[in-house]
């Protein structure tokens, strides 16, 4: 567990200070395609910052978010023990990387100073038959977390019915409402299903997918692809300055719903889509 702790501290460092290659190349493409003017300048600053952060090994963005772990663990590994290891690694990473302490007590309004607290960081477990332990870490800033929205279809003012076209309209509305406040170009995660808690997590999980990959189900894949084109016609652009690239990708997944319930959650991720994986075995 001591070695694993060290591994998780290094995972924190990697995720906080560098972007995955698929995200970075999508941003580079957005820069090249953008109109001349402040939107293109914004993309240039973003790319310069990515380079500087990597070079200096400093966090790309000062908001290192609510650290969110998606862990797939073999049967013989204890969840409790692993949670302890993640908490220890979080305290160490906050000091060493460093991360910004973001855990604030609701009652006292005090910042714990080390990124741990009541259900902080967020950790989700899943069991696997494999022998490998997989730890995915997402550092998602809260500017974009605040830009996410939950919809309950039908939505009359959007003329959104209980079908995939209704889902499409919710996603368009969510991006319109976010405008530039969550640091576009965005990556969107969309979750569809029966219950509020379920779709919210499903939406966020989509953000772990690689830029450019598509859902295995044709109709979902087509909707993802269509939305990328349509959302970029909103013209919100980098930083909300007006421009060509408002989203770099849309990721969607679904679960069965209830006859009465059709929930859609849209999780918005800023351009600094920070994620990384540690495989331990």
């Amino acid at each position: 567990m001591l070695k694993l702790k060290h591994g998780i501290v290094e995972l924190y460092r990697k995720v906080a200070t560098s972007l995955p290659p698929d995200v970075e190349s999508a941003l580079r493409k957005a820069y090249e395609e953008e109109y001349e003017g402040i939107a293109k300048e914004a993309m240039k600053t973003i790319l310069d910052n990515i380079g500087l952060a990597r070079e200096r090994s400093r966090p790309i963005c000062q908001d290192t978010g609510v650290p969110t772990f998606f862990v797939t663990l073999p049967r013989q590994v204890s969840q409790k023990e692993l949670t302890r290891t993640i908490l220890d690694a979080t305290i160490e990473a906050t000091e060493k990387v460093p991360l910004r302490p973001n855990a604030v007590d609701i009652i006292t309004d005090r910042n714990s100073g080390n990124n741990t607290g009541r259900n902080f960081p967020l950790i989700y477990f899943e069991e696997t038959d494999e022998h490998l332990l997989t730890v995915d870490l997402m550092l998602k800033g809260s500017g974009c977390e605040n830009a996410g929205r939950l919809y309950r279809l039908p939505v009359e003012e959007l003329n959104a019915q209980r079908d995939l076209d209704g889902v499409r309209k919710c996603v368009a509305d969510a991006v319109f409402r976010a405008q530039g406040r969550g640091c576009p170009p965005y990556t969107l995660g969309v979750g569809i299903g029966a219950a509020k808690d379920q779709v919210t997590l499903l939406a966020k999980r989509q953000l772990l997918r690689r830029i450019g990959d598509r859902h295995e189900e044709d109709r979902i894949s087509a909707l993802e692809q269509r939305l990328v084109g349509e959302l970029n016609r909103l013209g919100i652009g980098p930083m909300g300055f007006g421009g060509k690239t408002t989203v770099i990708d849309v990721k969607m997944d679904y679960n069965h719903r209830h006859p009465a319930s059709y929930f859609v959650d849209v999780s918005v991720c800023c351009w600094a889509n920070r994620r990384g994986r540690l495989v331990w075995g």
């Binding site: 076209d165 368009a172 530039g180």
Partner: peptide, 23 residues
């Protein structure tokens, strides 16, 4: 305000996307 201008322009585009069947 640039933000007001971008919001107004994107609202027009949103209305197009919300038409039955989309844009």
């Amino acid at each position: 305000s640039l933000h007001r201008a971008v919001a107004e322009e994107s609202r027009k585009r949103l209305v197009e996307l919300l038409r039955p069947g989309g844009a």
